[in-house]
């Protein structure tokens, strides 16, 4: 008590401020820790994320190589991004990857639902299907390079199934299907991870609901449609958003398997080429900024879309509740009367 009161007295007397003393005091320590907890993460975030980003933003207005003189060119780089047909042409490939992402989500959701019910050897299946996610993307690239080689793994398997080699396409050479081949590798890699996320979400659904539904005579599909899907809506939304953003910035499969040649160069591969082979750092930076905005817009649009879809249902529910209450009130009135 006395110490506290003396502190008060000190404060009142406005004694000179001793930093060391203050730092050792309880209050000082509190402040220091609070500031440190706030400041250190912010500092790291700033140095490793925002500062490099700001630098890149600055680069996008210059004509420059990694070393050597830089020349300010204003919006020239941005104009070029929109003028060059290889930049936005490459973005068209993203539709392949978005399509793949949708297929991947459907497969993952289907398998997750299956596996969340009682299945023999369910955990082994989960393990097998999650396994590709653990392999490094580079290794997957090499696996599929051989997988798709003419007369190698894939063709052999198809021949077992009765296909003739002459009727099979060249999986990586034919420009009509080579992007699909590449997307398939990415689906193969990520559907297991999506599936595990979905299983996690489905596990949180109250098992009594299934029982009740079964008593009401609902079949498995109806259980999925009316119990599981509404309960895991949030995680589905999240996965869709992540998949689409990921599709816009697809890089590994084309870079490793085809090195972006033969019409498989996605936006990132083209950007990498421009930045590292031709060393047009300014142009590549502005490409990155443009892509960032595209991703922003895509994300916002998706959010709005899902918000719209969800609000609709909630509104319905709200109205339903409102109506129910109203009728209850009416009922009570009747009874009361």
């Amino acid at each position: 008590m006395s110490a506290a009161s003396s502190q008060v007295v000190q404060a009142k007397q406005k004694r000179p401020f001793y930093f060391l003393k203050w730092a050792k005091s309880r209050k000082g320590q509190q402040t220091i820790i609070i500031v440190a907890f706030m400041f250190i993460p912010l500092l790291l975030l700033f140095t490793f994320t925002y500062f490099p980003f700001a630098e890149m933003f600055k680069f996008s207005f210059y004509k420059m190589k990694y070393i050597g003189p830089r020349k300010f060119v204003g919006l020239d780089n941005y104009i070029q991004v929109f003028k060059r047909d290889d930049c936005f042409g490459a973005l068209k490939l993203s539709f392949y990857y978005i399509g793949g992402a949708m297929v991947q989500l459907v497969i993952a959701l289907y398998l997750a639902t299956m596996l969340s019910f009682k299945v023999k050897g369910g955990n082994i299946f989960k393990g097998f299907m999650f396994f590709p996610y653990l392999i490094s993307g580079i290794a997957i690239g090499f696996i599929f390079k051989f997988f798709y080689t003419r007369g190698f793994v894939f063709d052999t398997v198809l021949q077992w199934c009765g296909f003739e080699l002459e009727n099979l396409p060249y999986w990586l050479k034919d420009q009509r299907i080579n992007n699909i081949s590449l997307v398939a590798t990415s689906v193969w890699r990520y559907f297991g991870q999506n599936m595990v996320l979905f299983i996690g979400a489905i596990m949180s659904v109250d098992a009594e609901l299934y029982e009740a539904a079964e008593l009401d005579g609902a079949n498995k599909f109806q259980q999925f449609r009316f119990i599981i899907l509404p309960s895991i809506k949030t995680i589905v939304t999240l996965n869709v958003i992540l998949s689409i953003t990921g599709s816009l910035s697809a890089f590994e499969p084309p870079y490793v398997i085809t090195s972006g040649a033969n019409g498989t160069g996605t936006y990132f591969v083209i950007m990498n080429d421009i930045a590292h082979v031709s060393q047009k750092v300014g142009l590549a930076s502005s490409m990155a900024i443009v892509l960032l905005f595209i991703i922003f817009v895509a994300t916002v649009l998706q959010k709005l879309f899902f918000k719209y879809v969800m609000r609709d249902e909630e509104d319905e529910n709200k109205r339903a509740g409102f109506r129910r209450e109203k009728s209850l009130v009416r009922y009570r009135k009747k009874r009361g009367a």
Partner: peptide, 22 residues
């Protein structure tokens, strides 16, 4: 010139020659 034209002759301009084949 190599960087500006993106042909990168004798300096890693693999894609342009690949494109010939395609």
């Amino acid at each position: 010139l190599n960087a500006e034209s993106e042909l990168n002759i004798n300096s890693g301009g693999d894609t342009k020659v690949q494109a010939i084949i395609e």
